[in-house]
Structure formats: structure tokens, C-alpha cells
Design a binder for these strands. Structure first.
Lengths: 227, 227
DNA sequence: ACGTCAGATGATGTGCACAACAGGCGGGTG
DNA sequence: CACCCGCCTGTTGTGCACATCATCTGACGT
């Protein structure tokens, strides 16, 4: 599991910002893993009780999720998990196709042995999925893979924006799988092959190849999804 | 003046979201125009009084500004306008250089006569600056030019991210000018020439040329800034 | 039977008082 | 004189009560 952008447990007591980031990532993961499917109504009081805080700080989390396009709040109605229009989904994918090239060409930090070992571990998880297929485990793996590859660039703004775009549409693929519109086993096969190819290119230091492989994978993945 | 992302005055009464966007854009402009220079302490109570609201909704605005990297809030200390590290500034510019190419190649909407007339008006403002140089007016013109050219792409996520990046660093250039590290007249001359070239390319329908001209302008502008 | 409207209900948005925290000031002490 | 500790002040963070809004319900009138 990749630590994401949540600050790890530090020595001192948890500050307000730590709680905020933790709860934000938590709810975001629930949305991306479809525990809160599109249209689900999120109750501020219930979530506040669950996290042991008041509505005030929780509303700040929901406000950020709204900025990120994951929920929408309507006065007097409620806070609902957003659905994604077909056109916007296509726009996000077209943009992500371009950004992955930048992730391996802009301010790149060459991978070291430790990094390669981490990617090998991810490959092992991909291989393991073949014998024990699980849509959620696949989704989690894809997220970790994405965050790991994002470390290749040292460009902070590029990292931030790529993350936002990724989490904006990550749940759609999972939704299509659960609706049986995508063959899970086939996707896992393709994915494992892609991870293997990426690892190979990383070992050779050919980051440009990594970018173009990811680009084509995103393109094909999108094509299979809307099929 | 370009309307920006603030919803215009609609028929009904102002909703909460309208107030929020209005105040957000207002404070953001003050920061970008250096009315609140880096390091300035923003008082929540004072701002709340000025806008005639309570601290609660104002804090939501400040939270968003903090997400966008324009301010930082520290518990018990205050909310200060951020300064920009040299390294981060360079990262933003490197990324923006790539994004401007996408703005004229991804989901582009060909400009019509009305659009061309608006760019002509912008060119007129640039020419007018030659006889009445003003750093703030120049800064405002650059913002309007940026937002106008951003309309060339219909890709909403690309628009959103480009905006965030632009407003993240827009004040730095103005800061360098007021510190007399940049020659204002020379910048205005260069800028007017660039707008003229862009307008020419737009009339010819050569959007690719527009992108590359903007890219080189950003590159040169950054080089002059850090000189 | 059907349309209408007042009231109930539950949600988000707002205002306000207090808690938590950091920094500055000043007196006490070795 | 230097250092330390406690108080004071100003700021952000939190909890809570209320305002505002949209939706549903059901009684009423036609």
C-alpha cells in the first residue's frame, strides 16, 4: 500500500491538518471504491459522528471534495456523490493521455534500486490477482501503481493535478467492471503485462518508453470501457 | 474585462455559492495584484466584516485559497499570503510551457468573428499601454488575455488546471516589475508584439502556431524574470 | 376526484461563543 | 545579568444553536 498524500503518524499529537487530510483521503477512497456509489447521499451529521468531530471541520472536508468534483452539495437537499457525464469522462482521459507523457519527461528523477523493488512488489500483486481476481483489489493496485509512477517526476504541480484527475474518474472503471461491462480477467491479464513491460523499461532507464506505454494503455483502457 | 469564473448577476437572489465565488475571486485578485503582498497577514474578522458575513463562510474561502497555494493558515498565528520558492516557480513555468500547447491542440473550438473582435480589443489595450504604462493595468490585461485564449479549448479539466497554475504565479512577475528588476516598457513592447502575432495566427486559423508562440513567450518571460 | 396550500421534516448554510494554540511581555530567581 | 516561567493577547479551530431552503404530506376547498 502506498501512503498517498496523507502525512504519516508523527511524534507529536495529531494536528488539525492531519485529521483533515486523513478524513479527506478516507472519504475519497470510499467514493473511489464505490462504497459510496454515485447518487449516494452523504449525511454530514452521520459522518461527523463517525469520525468523532463536529459538522464544522467535516464540512471543510466536503467542501474540498466538492472542489475536486467528487460530491455536490445543494442547500436544503443534501450532499450527493457525483456521477460523471460521458463527455467530461472523455475530456479527462484525453488530458490524462497527455499528462502521462509529461510525468516521464518533466523533472524526472531516475529510479534507484529501492524504487525498482517497489515496482517489482506491485508486479507481484498484479500476478497474484490472476489466481484471486477481485475488482476492489485491482482498483487499489491500480491506484498504488499510479501513485508510485507519479514519483518519477519531481514536478509538484504536475503531481497534484495528475492526482486530482486520477481520483476524479478512478471509480468509473470499477463501476463498469461491477456492471459486467468489462471482463475482469482480461483486464487483469492486460494490466499484468503492462506492469511487466513498464518494469522492464524502468530497468533499462527508458522513461520515454514508459510514458508512451502508459499513454497507449490509457487509450485502450478507455476504448474498452466505453465499448 | 473578462468575466472570469464568477457567475454573472442572475435573475434570482444571490445564492450562497454566488457569494462564495465572488468573494473568492475578489481576494484572489487582491493577492495577484499585490494589494496583499507575500507575508501579509489576513485577518478573518476584518475580512468577514468587510464582506458583511460571518467568519464561518469566509473561512471556507480561505480554505480554498489555501488549497490553491495562495495563503497558508497556522493555528494560533494567522493566515499569511504565501511567498513562492524559486524551485516551485520554475516547476510551474515548465509545466505551463507544456500546457499552453495543449490549450491549442486539445478539444479546440475554432474562433469565430466575435472572438476575434475580442482579441482585437485586447490588442488595443496592449497598444494603449505604450502611451500610459501601468504595471497593474498590464497585469490585468495579461490575465484577461490568458482567460480569453483559454476559451479556445473546450476541455474543462485543462481549463481548470491552467487557471490554478496561472493564478498561482501571476503575482511574481508583477512583484519583479515593482522591484524594478524588469523593464516595464520593454515588457509592454514585447507583449504587444506577441498579441499582434497571436491575433494574426488566429485569423489564419493556425492554432498550432498560437500555441508555440505562447510557449516561447512564457519561456522568454521566465528567463527575463529570473535574470 | 383533484388541485392547492399550509405545515412538518430533514438537509445544508450561518452566526456566535468558546477552546486550543503560538508568541510576546514582564516579573521572579539563580 | 541571564534565564526561566507564567500571564496576557491575538489568532485560528471547534461545537452548537438557529436560519434558510427544498421536499413531502395531508387536510381543505372546489
Amino acid at each position: 500500500m502506498v501512503d498517498d498524500d496523507v502525512t504519516e503518524t508523527r511524534d507529536g499529537p495529531l494536528t488539525a491538518r492531519d485529521r483533515f487530510d486523513r478524513i479527506h483521503a478516507d472519504i475519497r477512497n470510499r467514493i473511489c471504491l464505490l462504497e459510496y456509489p454515485p447518487g449516494e447521499k452523504l449525511s454530514e451529521v452521520e459522518l461527523a459522528e463517525e469520525f468523532g468531530i463536529s459538522r464544522t471541520p467535516l464540512r471543510r472536508v466536503l467542501a474540498r471534495l466538492e472542489d475536486e468534483g467528487l460530491v455536490t452539495s445543494v442547500h436544503g437537499v443534501g450532499t450527493m456523490v457525483t456521477d460523471i457525464e460521458m463527455e467530461e469522462l472523455a475530456q479527462v482521459y484525453r488530458l490524462r493521455k497527455e499528462l502521462v507523457l509529461l510525468q516521464t519527461s518533466l523533472d524526472v528523477a531516475p529510479p534507484d534500486a529501492v524504487y525498482l523493488a517497489r515496482v517489482e512488489a506491485l508486479l507481484a500483486r498484479a500476478e497474484a490477482l490472476k489466481t484471486a481476481p477481485s475488482a476492489k483489489a485491482f482498483s487499489t493496485l491500480d491506484r498504488d501503481m499510479f501513485l508510485t509512477l507519479l514519483e518519477l517526476t519531481a514536478n509538484t504541480p504536475l503531481r497534484t493535478m495528475s492526482k486530482r484527475l486520477y481520483f476524479r474518474t478512478a471509480r468509473i472503471w470499477l463501476q463498469q467492471v461491477t456492471a459486467s461491462k468489462i471482463d475482469l480477467m482480461q483486464e487483469i491479464e492486460v494490466y499484468a503485462r503492462e506492469v511487466r513491460d513498464i518494469l522492464e523499461a524502468l530497468k533499462l532507464g527508458d522513461l520515454d518508453a514508459v510514458g508512451h506505454m502508459r499513454r497507449s494503455h490509457i487509450s485502450l483502457s478507455f476504448a474498452r470501457m466505453i465499448k
